[in-house]
């Protein structure tokens, strides 16, 4: 498999605080890689390091197979675009002027595609309005447009939906999906909003304490997040006996709660429990989400 980014034992320290502590990860080409972690876990530090804003104190990373210490890394960076933390745009310029600036920075000979780019991010009708008067969503989209100026193959987005209203979140999500599916751009997104990330990502990397705790593809995650029926009963002892008899896979969660995996004949189960004097109080289908997976993972229970 080809990788846009490979990080190997990256370390970065601010004073005594280890922001990255031997972090290793791989972003496959064509993926939308969701980078998940709590505040201060090292997400933004990693993005700053791979974008060349900061130098790692140890380890190395490869962009499109080129090592960060290689002289060719500057050329390879031309294939990257990034919005790290806040959108990097001139507040006193219009959307078009901002894109013109980036075209100059990249040395692109023609400014023809600017209109197309503005249309892609939904900013084609902003006219003479300066970026400082843009809404947060508009600024975020303009930041992405600036990052897209050189037709990058790899787009790095740091918390792209932070602070956006629901409409803004949908717009950014659709834009990212369009960029990935229609333009084949690999996207690395860090986000706190796990529900939103789960609608986008094809791969996940979970970071904690400056280290990747787990890398997993969306398919693997879906397999790990199995559907189950969660029920609360008056006697889990009886429940265990009945489920063993029915050869059902299950997990006892507490004195009164249990998860039952696989196809379950509910009426048969309730009758069997009733026959042994066990009451079923509530019962509902439970679908483990990215959020619960993340909580379990960070709790240290399931690292494999």
């Amino acid at each position: 498999m080809e990788y846009c980014l490979e990080a190997k034992s990256l370390c970065k320290q601010y004073g005594h605080f280890k922001a990255l502590n031997g972090l290793s990860m791989r972003v496959p080409r064509g993926a939308i890689y969701g980078f998940v972690g709590r505040n201060g876990a090292g997400k933004t530090t990693l993005l700053r390091v791979i974008c060349g804003l900061q130098k790692p104190d140890g380890g190395e990373y490869l962009l499109f197979g080129t090592k960060n210490e290689s002289a060719d890394i500057y050329k390879v960076r031309r294939r990257m675009g990034a919005v790290v933390e806040t959108p990097s745009i001139y507040a006193e310029m219009t959307a078009e002027e901002n894109l013109r600036m980036q075209y100059h920075v990249l040395g692109l000979p023609s400014l023809e595609n600017i209109g197309e780019l503005l249309q892609l991010v939904g900013l084609s009708n902003t006219g003479r309005k300066k970026a400082r008067n843009f809404s947060l969503g508009m600024r975020q989209r303009l930041g992405i447009a600036v990052a897209l100026c050189g037709n990058p193959d790899f787009l790095v987005l740091d918390e792209p939906v932070n602070g956006l209203d629901p409409q803004g979140i949908v717009e950014i999500r659709e834009l990212i999906l369009r960029l990935n599916r229609e333009h084949g751009i690999t996207v690395l997104i860090s986000s706190h909003i796990l529900d939103e990330l789960s609608r986008l990502a094809t791969h996940y990397g979970f970071i904690d304490g400056g280290t990747i705790v787990k890398e997993i593809s969306a398919e693997e995650l879906n397999a790990a997040c199995r559907k189950c029926v969660r029920l609360t009963v008056s006697d889990t002892g009886v429940l265990c006996r009945v489920l063993d008899r029915m050869e059902q896979e299950y997990q006892i969660l507490s004195d009164s709660e249990a998860d039952i995996y696989g196809e379950t004949n509910i009426s048969q189960l309730i009758s069997a429990l009733g026959a042994e004097g066990c009451e079923v109080i509530p019962l509902h289908e439970h679908d483990e989400s990215l959020e619960s997976y993340y909580i379990n993972l960070m709790g240290g229970g399931r690292h494999d």
């Binding site: 974008c51 060349g52 804003l53 890394i73 500057y74 050329k75 390879v76 960076r77 031309r78 990257m80 675009g81 990034a82 790290v84 933390e85 806040t86 959108p87 990097s88 745009i89 001139y90 507040a91 006193e92 600036m101 980036q102 920075v105 990249l106 600036v146 990052a147 050189g150 790095v156």
Partner: peptide
């Protein structure tokens, strides 16, 4: 300072300017 304040200095570094 505008380049730092608006964060646009990052746009130059990200695309590989020395």
């Amino acid at each position: 300072g505008t380049d730092y304040q608006d964060g646009t200095i990052r746009n130059k570094l990200v695309v590989g300017h020395r």
